[in-house]
Structures are given as C-alpha cells and as structure tokens.
C-alpha cells in the first residue's frame, strides 16, 4: 500500500502558487488578445473581397489544422532563427496560444455573423447606415450574445492548453509541479494535487458553457 504524503506538496504551496498565477496570466492574456484579433480575422473571412478573405482563410486553416504544441515549438525554436532574436518561453507560448485562439474564435465570429438574418443588414442599410455602422450597431450586438457559450468554451480549452507551455519550460502550474516532483520524488501527490487544482479552475467554466448552451437552446 502506498503511503500518501501531501505534506511536501503543501509546504511548497508558493511554488505552485507562482505556477497558478502564470497559468492564469498566460490564459487571460491570450484570451483577450485572441478574441479581439479573432473579431478582425472573422470579419475578414466573412468579407467577399478576396484581398481580405484569402489571407484570413489561409491563416485560419493553418492554425486550426496543425497541433498547437507544434505551433508553440515553432515559435520557440524556429522563429528566433528567422528573426535573428531571442524569444523567451512566455512569448513563444503566448504567440502560439494566441494565434490558435484567433483562428478558432474568428470562426465563431464568422458563424455568429452569418447566423443573423439578412433582413437585419437590410434594415440597417435602409436607415442609411454604413457597413461599419451596420456591423457595429446591428449585427455584432445580436451575434455576440449567441457566441458567448462558444467563447466560454474557448476559454476552457485555452486554460487546458496553457499546460503545453511546460514543454518549453515556462513556469506555469504543470511545469512547477514537474519541478517539485523531480526534487522530492513525489509525483503521485504533486500531480494529483495539480490535477485537482486544474479541475477546480476549469470545471466552473465547463458548467457555465453547459448552462449558456441550454439557455441558448430555449
């Protein structure tokens, strides 16, 4: 029978605490940046003009159809050579996760915009609104409320993906756990605690998605 001992994990709470903060920081930054830029890319994809549509489509297809870990590794190991500069682990993780979020959220924006009845555009047009005004005043306010469950889901996925930054040694929660377990040889307790921390962090998000989806169905 294995003798569980959570003492060491708890006495290292500050190490895990730093990790948790880094996880939250990374996720929050990527989410905010990813959603804002995702809106632009989404509108570009919705556009009928090839000059906007094509580059946006290629961007989305590439980042949706390659693994995010490959993206992070590329930004960490390959991009510095191309740019002839150093890129630290945080920046590489930030770039990878943000690009990924842009690609996925732009699809959500596009889908949301498409879901609005054409009559809404026409009603805006009939009032003499410009394209930007129609988008800003009529379409987006309606579309965004429909998109909220999907965005919350992106947030959940993003928090899970931040663990990938541990592979390039960014000190987020999982990486800190790895450090503790290597020093004290206590992977059981450390990884169990970390799994629970993540669950507590993410589960409310999952629940929220459920609730929002249910409400949207009604």
């Amino acid at each position: 029978m294995y003798n569980w001992d959570f003492g060491i994990v708890f006495s290292n709470w500050n190490v895990l605490g730093i990790g948790l903060l880094n996880t939250i920081k990374l996720a929050a930054l990527c989410l905010v940046t990813g959603l804002s830029l995702g809106l632009l890319v989404g509108i570009a994809r919705y556009s009928k003009r090839k000059i906007f549509n094509w580059p946006a489509s290629i961007f989305v297809e590439v980042f949706r159809n390659t693994p995010v870990l490959v993206q992070i590794m590329w930004f960490f190991f390959a991009l510095p050579i191309l740019l002839q500069t150093q890129i630290n682990a945080f920046s590489a993780a930030f770039l990878g996760l943000t690009m990924n979020t842009i690609a996925f959220s732009s699809e959500i924006f596009r889908g949301g915009i498409q879901s609005i009845a054409p009559g809404q555009w026409e009603a805006g047009k009939a009032l003499g609104m410009t394209y930007v005004q129609q988008m800003q005043r009529v379409i987006l306010p309606q579309a965004i409320s429909r998109m909220i469950p999907a965005f919350t889901n992106r947030g959940v996925e993003l928090v899970k993906m931040t663990t990938l930054a541990s592979v390039i040694a960014f000190g987020e929660l999982l990486h800190q756990a790895k450090t503790i377990s290597t020093i004290y040889f206590n992977p059981i307790e450390t990884y169990t605690v970390v799994a629970l921390i993540f669950f507590v962090l993410i589960y409310p998000g999952t629940l929220l998605v459920r609730k929002l989806e249910k409400r949207a169905d009604q």
Partner: peptide, 16 residues
C-alpha cells in the same frame, strides 16, 4: 476528463 488538461492526465498516468 473534460475539465482537466490532457497533458496533466498523461503525466498522471505515466508517473503516478
């Protein structure tokens, strides 16, 4: 399993 990161699950199974 939906609310924990896959990498944490993998580590747990591999190390624990």
């Amino acid at each position: 399993f939906r609310s924990t990161p896959p990498l944490v699950q993998l580590f747990w199974i591999f190390f624990v």
